[in-house]
Design a protein around this nucleic acid. Structure first.
Length: 928
RNA sequence: GCGGGAGUAACUCAGUGGUAGAGUGCCAUCUUGACAAGGUGGAAGUCGGCGGUUCAAACCCGCCCUCCCGCACCA
């Protein structure tokens, strides 16, 4: 047989197989949701978190995609009309930056092209390389309904955005206002609070200087600041009204040393903490949020000293044109020259940085569009509080509530060119604003045609917030919207709970009057195996596609260098993956990502773990290969029907299959895909492969026609069922094998269309079989241990004399004799006279002894007495430890009286079994 | 300052009251006809520390130490 070329290769090769099946599924339309009015199936809908159009598949996407695909494939197999709605996000800043970078290489800026040409250029780029990530999601096996793919700038999305903007405007929930905003001087746009990161622990300087009193008053007031340059925009100094030290300053003025300006001393209990510094605060309303609020309270002038690029403007007098940081030193020098410096000390502070450009964000007065959030937040809070939306893991609810309860208005305008245009037009004649669904031809107030559209675009997240219903056709009342809204699950990373999840809930409730989804699943962030965030600089990025298709070490290094990895990063990469990656396949990657607990905030991905699951895929492959070889000439064997076998092993594996399916179902229902996949993994490997396949060899070779028949039926049924159960997790390999398994006449064309196996339908729990098979496993385990300890070659059969007083166990051993002898490599002899075993030394030369629950046995003439002593001593020690713990418990009267009866009973049983075992081992030891 | 999370085997992590688990790694051994990407056997943990509740604590409570993450404030 070994001479014959194998029809099925020994190693599973994922690369070719995965692409082939994916193409088959997509071409066959298996991913498509139905809008057929006669289709009465319940729906299951999940909208993909649309990746950035600039995006390239990373592990975060891979993780999301896997999780979502499992949910969708599972629901689909359960008979739901399943819609997994795919799409891409236009990603305002991110995309604009990418194209601007390209232009830079040509020596151009976007201003050289002008707005229209630039936007055209971005579209061009989008058409060429934009949708790449959707192809990459396919490599993961994602079963999205691609026929519905949306881009957030598609015409119908534009329509949805305009509709929602206009409605919110008409309802007074969108307004235009001048206030202090976060200004990114590099990207030259405003940012929402969420787009600003606070960099903590920055070592800075607290600089003290003096303002001389004006109007002939002698003296000065000393103020402290971390930003001396902003004094150019100071319009007050503030003291606490109750501060006795400064009572003489009430109503006075100070003189600005550089600019011809008198600055009032104001009293403000809110701004000033008399304990801090000198107790005097300089007030710069145009460049600090607190000062801005103070300015509003006191009606102070707001003097903006900055240009939009971060240089100082004409209000800075002689400092005009200097960069903001250069200006800081210049101002300090100037103050020093005037003898006004009063000291300086180190100061630890927090700096606001732009998430995009990394530059320090400037608070700047600007006119922007805002969404009034409170009225939207209230229903969103209620929806979660009342359980109409469930957030998992639950601890995120607190974070969600905390944010919404303290929410600030959302600044939605951005000074970019790429994005949804603000549908507002300014009239040149009357300066009224016209906000309109359609491009207006005249001012709504005065009828003038002198209209100019607002030049800003909307925050990318504005269109994302509409995603669950805009993708289904809103504002049209389409059949899709009716059928698939609200959706069921929303799965995404916890890092965008505010950016996206909360806003979708608010907008969904507002525009649809219904929650956009009933469950939010928040997953952790994927990091490298050290728990460090994957970063191009660190060289620790694992590209999912490299894992799937393989990559040499050289390729990895070249790629990392190209991406700008540091020297240390390259070194780490070379050290960690000296061999590169073999093609592990999408299924192995998926299983790995699923195996991490969804409750963890960090998914420290390890290549070793991926390798482990690649090995699992291979194990499944080879187990199937064995089964298919054995079943090759039994065409009649159909997998569909659950057999009713008589043989113990067959009954056992079906019972265990039942339990594994039950565990998988429980895991899937609870969104614990780690538990679900783990249950099937262990069933397949530890039970089906390690025990059942081995036992089946004996049965299939037995020549007993009835036994052969029922074993074949059980084998194929178990395999076919476990393939269906695993399909959502490992779609490609299960399809590859399932297609080869003998099937029933009207079987569907793909495993993904087959029914998901349910424990209740497929088998009944056979507890007796499970209990009896444990006897087989324990006995074989003992024999293997003896063999291993005494280095007995497998080619040498051993004689085994055994005895038990337990009728059930005796029955099992006698009826499973063939199996036991095959797996144990032995010849079994029942020893009716148990005293001969107790006193084995007299009757058997060099006997090794084993003791199982209720079964004793000896293996004569095979042993090294020293090793036997070692083995027995070790066993004895283990038993002593266990027995000690149990006995201690039982000696405690409180335990016996207060613990539940079943717990006490179990302990008693354990104790007596352990004592018996202990006695046996001691006898055996003393004999040596 | 407010809030959340984490600390369990060498590593990465499961484990919400009843005798500590997995994957990888390690040691030994086996090319037994599905699979060496494998089989078999084995070693390895004062469950961060201290106290409390309980018959019983990795798990519940309190305090402490270390690390991570949000939010707010920071003259």
């Amino acid at each position: 047989m070994s001479d014959e070329p194998d029809e099925i290769p020994k190693h599973y090769a994922p690369t070719e197989s995965e692409g082939r099946w994916y193409e088959f599924w997509e071409r066959s339309g298996f991913f498509e949701a139905s809008e057929d009015p006669d289709d009465r199936r319940e729906t299951y809908t999940l909208a993909i978190p649309p990746p950035n159009v600039t995006g390239s598949l990373h592990m975060g996407h891979a993780c999301r995609t896997t999780f979502e695909d499992v949910l969708c494939r599972h629901k689909r197999m359960q008979g739901y009309n399943t819609l997994w709605m795919p799409g891409i996000d236009h990603a305002g800043i991110a995309t604009q930056v990418v194209v601007e970078r390209q232009l830079k290489k040509e020596g151009l800026t976007r201003h050289d092209l002008g707005r229209k040409a630039f936007v055209e250029r971005v579209w061009q780029w989008k058409e060429q390389s934009g949708g790449r990530i959707l192809q990459q999601l396919r490599k993961m096996g994602a079963s999205c309904d691609w026929s519905r793919t949306k881009f957030t700038l598609d015409p119908d999305m534009v329509r949805a955005v305009r509709e929602s903007f206009v409605r919110l405007y008409e309802e007074g929930l969108i307004y235009r206002d001048t206030r202090l905003v976060n200004w990114d001087v590099e990207s030259r746009t405003v940012l929402s609070d969420l787009e600003v990161d606070q960099e903590e622990g920055v070592e800075g300087e607290l600089f003290d200087f003096a303002y001389p009193l004006a109007d002939g008053d002698d003296g000065e007031v000393v103020v402290s600041t971390t930003r001396p340059e902003t004094m150019l925009g100071d319009t007050a100094v503030a003291i606490h009204p109750d501060d006795e030290r400064y009572r003489h300053l009430h109503g006075k003025f100070v003189r600005h040393p550089f600019v011809d300006r008198l600055i009032p001393v104001i009293l403000d209990a809110e701004l000033v903490d008399p304990e801090f510094g000198t107790g005097v605060v300089k007030v710069t309303p145009a460049h600090d949020p607190n000062d801005f609020a103070t300015g509003k309270r006191h009606g102070l002038e707001e003097i903006n000293i900055l240009n939009l690029d971060g240089t100082l403007n004409e209000n800075a007098g002689r400092f005009q044109g200097l960069d903001r940081f250069t200006a800081r030193d210049a101002v300090k020098d100037e103050l020093s020259g005037l003898g006004l410096v009063r000291g300086s000390k180190k100061h630890t502070m927090t700096l606001p940085r732009s998430q995009r450009s990394g530059t320090i964000v400037e608070p700047l007065i600007s006119t922007q569009w805002f969404v009034k959030m409170r009225p939207l937040a209230e229903p969103a809070i209620a929806a979660v509080r009342e359980g109409r939306i469930q957030i998992l893991p639950e601890e995120w609810e607190k974070t969600y509530f905390h944010w919404l309860e303290n929410i600030q208005d959302w600044c939605i305008s951005r000074q970019l060119w790429w994005g949804h245009e603000v549908p507002a037009w300014y009239c040149g004649a009357c300066s009224e604003v016209t906000v309109s669904r359609e491009d207006p031809s005249e001012c709504k107030a005065c009828g003038s045609t002198e209209l100019r559209q607002d030049e800003d675009v909307l925050d990318t997240w504005f269109s994302s917030a509409l995603w669950p219903f805009s993708t289904l056709g809103w504002p049209e009342d389409t059949p899709a919207l009716q059928r698939f809204y609200p959706t069921q699950d929303m799965e995404t990373g916890y890092d965008i709970i505010f950016f996206w999840v909360a806003r979708m809930i608010m907008m969904g409730l507002h525009f649809m009057g219904e929650v956009p989804f009933t469950r939010v699943l928040l997953a952790g962030l994927v990091t490298d195996e050290r728990g460090e965030k994957m970063s191009k600089v660190k060289g620790n990025v694992i590209d999912p596609l490299d894992v799937i298709h393989g990559a040499t070490a050289d390729e990895l290094v070249a790629k990392a260098e190209n991406a700008g990895a540091s020297k240390a990063g390259i070194k780490y990469l070379k050290k960690t993956y000296p061999e590169g990656f073999v093609a592990y396949g999408a299924d192995a990657l998926r299983m790995t990502l699923l195996s991490y607990s969804p409750q963890s905030r960090r998914i420290a991905l390890s290549i070793k773990r991926i390798e482990g699951y690649r090995n699992f895929a291979n194990k499944l492959w080879n187990a199937s290969r064995y089964a298919l070889m054995k079943l090759s000439d039994s065409e009649a064997v159909a997998a569909q029907k659950c057999p009713r076998p008589n043989a113990l092993a067959n009954r056992w594996i079906l019972a265990r299959l039942f339990e594994a399916l039950d565990a998988a179902a429980t895991g899937l229902e609870a969104y614990r895909l780690d538990d679900a996949s783990g249950a099937l993994y262990h069933f397949l490997w530890d039970e089906f492969c390690d025990w059942y396949l081995e036992v089946s060899k004996t049965a299939l070779d037995s020549g007993d026609a009835a036994l052969v028949k029922e074993t074949e039926a059980t084998l194929v049924h178990t395999l076919e069922t476990v393939l269906r159960a695993l399909h959502p997790m490992m779609p490609h390999i299960t399809e590859e094998i399932w297609q080869r398994v003998p099937k029933w006449a009207d079987a569907p064309a793909s495993v993904m269309l087959a029914r998901y196996p349910s424990a209740l339908v497929d088998a009944k729990s056979d507890k007796d079989a499970v209990r009896d098979f444990e006897v087989v496993k324990a006995l074989v385990g003992s024999l293997r241990a003896i063999r291993a300890e005494h280095e007995i070659s497998w080619s040498r059969p051993i004689d085994v004399y055994w005895h038990t007083d337990d009728a059930v166990r005796r029955g099992v051993i006698q009826s499973e004799r063939a199996t036991l002898e095959a797996l144990g490599g032995c010849v079994l002899h029942f020893e009716p006279d148990s005293s001969r075993l107790d006193d084995a030394g007299k009757h058997f030369a060099n006997a090794a002894v084993f003791v199982n629950p209720g079964v004793r046995g000896v293996v004569p003439e095979v042993i090294d007495p020293e090793k036997e002593r070692e083995r027995l001593t070790r066993d004895l020690k283990k038993i002593d430890k266990e027995l000690g713990a149990v006995e201690k418990k039982l000696d405690n009267p409180s335990f016996v009286s207060r613990a539940p009866a079943e717990v006490v009973e179990k302990s008693k049983r354990d104790a007596s079994e352990l004592r018996a075992k202990r006695e046996q081992l001691e006898v055996a030891l003393s004999r040596l």
